[in-house]
C-alpha cells in the first residue's frame, strides 16, 4: 500500500512508548502494533484525532503517501 504510517518516528520525536500512547488514546497494544507495522487497512477519524492530540501533531505527520 502506498500509504505509509510514520507513527514510530513521531513517537520517537515525542519520546513516547507504545504502552503509554495506547493508554492515552484508549487503544489496545495489539491494535497499535497493527497500525505501526502498516498492517491496518483503515484508520478511523476518531483514532487519528486521538493520536494527533496525544502526539501534538498533524495527520500528515503520521500518514504519508509514497509511490
Amino acid at each position: 500500500m502506498p500509504i505509509v504510517v510514520n507513527l514510530d518516528m513521531m513517537m520517537l520525536k515525542r519520546k513516547m512508548s507504545s504502552g503509554e500512547l495506547a493508554e492515552i488514546i484508549g487503544l489496545s497494544q495489539a491494535n497499535l502494533s497493527i497500525l505501526k507495522t502498516g498492517k491496518a487497512k483503515a484508520i478511523r477519524f476518531s483514532t487519528l484525532e486521538a493520536i494527533c492530540k496525544a502526539l501534538e501533531c498533524q495527520p500528515g505527520d503520521i500518514l504519508e503517501y509514497k509511490e
Binding site: L27, N31, L32, I34, L35, K39, A40, K41, A42, I43, R44, T47
Partner: peptide
C-alpha cells in the same frame, strides 16, 4: 470481516 478487523 478482515477489513473491519484491520480498521483501527
Amino acid at each position: 470481516q478482515e477489513e473491519a478487523d484491520y480498521t483501527i
